[in-house]
Nucleic acid binder design. Structure first.
Length: 458
RNA sequence: GAGGUUGUAGCUCAGUUGGUUAGAGCGCUAGAUUGUGGUUCUAGAGGUCGAGGGUUCGAAACCCUUCAUCCUCCCCA
């Protein structure tokens, strides 16, 4: 028997961590509900063909596939061998694998909408908080199983949706105390116009992949990569002009207009960003909305505005959320003309940011509020009955599991971060009283047991 | 998929050039303390040195293989 272990890139969450994570989930969920989004859950696994080809070539490799059961059935051995040969050639064969763990929440949502579009009321606004899996190599802030919190609305082209989503970001991060975050925005239309300006719409992917790295590797290396990706000197110089756009949002818009405003898609993109910038009435100490024309985002189904929430610069974690508009997501599933826009929160990274900046409120760690000491048979019977009265009032409490030295019972309370202990010993039993001790302050008082239920244990 | 790092007690880590019986701090258990925790003091338990093989009189240390881990790139949350 070898030592027990976890699959690579997965984690257990102990009680304290779960509490903190739930605090984040609950905050996000509450804000989603506040904006009229409805919950949705989809299965952990999808048919492989639902997922394949939706995340680009790189994405396909990162999908966790599930091996079919019954491959060892002797009757089907020959077929299995033949099928496996094809797998070795890099093909997907239904005989070997036809299901996969979901890779994100957006595609399963699109599948759901495509299957149910006849029944849904549009615009349909849903939120979804579930784990997803990626066969990625784990590293800092990156796991093979992690939660996504998505909110999408489909069936509307209105830019009002983008405005709402920007405000959801702001509400959530402000409530969590991450008020130095930045919400970067760009439009795929701007990027498309840039590609057009460089003479080839087909170059868009090459260009975006390269310029997305600007803040990471610097201008020179971006230019080198562009060259390597087959762009000529003139095109690179155009892109350099594009990358040199600086200033506040208004100034950036002026400069981008000069560069690509004469192009149809460029003009549209600029209008969208202008609208979003003017109408997101985000009142914050610093305005989190930052136009960033280098922002590209990997998922290739985005067509309009794209978002990326960045952690405060002091914590080197980068993106803590992202999203954007897609014009025709369900078209992939045979239901065309349903546009949508959505955002996602990266809970695991938000957790790391909050931990680093010490933003969790102290009381998230409190489970049990009151521990009743166990000081004998009669004493604990009395304690039990009072404990049940407190529980009826919603006070979380427990009775120590066996009569033992007070020393032990105190230490148990301390380790579990229980704020109060209630002592009912022989004296108290006789007098109909109890001792209530606040472990934080060390102050204790003796009160009649009848008064217990009127006390607040916080 | 490519490159690198580190694996020693429950946790964080020492361990000299390869040399006797592998250490510390924290944590854990018990006692000092028969109705008062946090501090202090004392004692105790706890190890296949990641695993397998090799070199050697002798390996935690050197070599090979393998597994795990963390990091960087690609890509992404």
């Amino acid at each position: 028997m070898s030592k027990p272990s976890l699959p690579q890139g997965t984690r257990d969450f102990g009680p304290e961590v779960v509490r903190k994570r739930q605090y984040i989930f609950n905050t996000i969920r509450t804000v989603f509900e506040l904006y009229g989004f409805q919950p949705l859950e989809t299965p952990a696994m999808e048919n492989l063909e639902t997922l394949m080809g939706k995340y680009g070539e790189e994405g396909d490799k990162l999908i966790f596939r599930i091996l079919n059961n019954g491959l060892d059935n002797p009757d089907k051995q020959q077929q299995a061998r033949a099928d496996f040969e094809k797998v070795l050639e890099g093909k997907n064969v239904k005989g070997i694998t036809e299901r996969a763990l979901k890779y994100d929440l957006t595609i399963p949502f699109a599948r759901y909408v495509a299957m149910n579009h006849g029944q849904l009321t549009f615009p349909f606004k849903r939120y979804q908080i579930q784990p997803v899996w990626r066969a990625d190599r784990p590293q800092r802030g990156r796991y093979r199983e992690f939660y996504q919190c998505d909110a999408d609305m489909v069936g509307s082209n209105s830019l009002l949706n983008e405005v709402e989503l920007a405000n959801i970001y702001n509400d959530v991060f402000t409530q969590l105390g991450i008020d130095q975050y930045e919400l970067r925005i760009n439009s795929r239309k701007i990027l498309a116009a840039l590609a057009e300006l460089c003479g080839g719409a087909d170059k868009m992917i090459d260009i975006t992949i390269a310029i997305d790295k600007l803040d990471k590797i610097g201008l020179d290396k971006v230019k080198a990569e562009l060259e390597q990706r087959g762009l000529n000197e003139e095109q690179i110089s155009t892109i350099e002009k594009y990358l040199n756009i600086t200033g506040n949002n208004r100034e950036k818009l002026q400069q981008i207009t000069a560069l690509i405003g004469h192009l149809e898609t460029g003009k549209k993109g600029i209008e969208e960003l202008e609208y979003l910038d003017n109408n997101s009435q985000i009142d914050n100490r610093h305005s989190p909305l930052v136009l960033d024309f280098t922002l590209a985002r990997g998922l290739n189904y985005y067509t309009g505005i794209i978002f990326e929430a960045k952690a405060p610069a002091t914590v080197k974690i980068g993106s803590i959320g992202g999203g954007g508009r897609y014009n025709d997501l369900t078209g992939l599933f045979g239901v065309p003309n349903i546009p949508g826009v959505g955002i996602s929160f990266g809970v695991d990274r938000i957790y790391d940011v909050m931990e680093e900046l010490q933003l969790f409120p102290e009381n998230v760690a409190i489970g049990t509020q009151v521990l009743f000491f166990n000081l004998g048979a009669d004493e604990s019977t009395m304690a039990f009955s009072h404990m049940q009265s407190l529980r009826k009032q919603g006070v979380r409490c427990e009775l120590f599991h066996e009569p033992t030295k007070m020393d032990k019972q105190f230490k148990y309370a301390e380790k579990k971060n229980i704020g109060f202990v209630i002592i009912i010993g022989s004296q108290e039993l006789q007098n109909g009283t109890c001792v209530v001790k606040n472990l934080k302050t060390g102050i204790q008082e003796t009160i009649p047991v009848a008064n217990l239920t009127s006390k607040l244990f916080i």
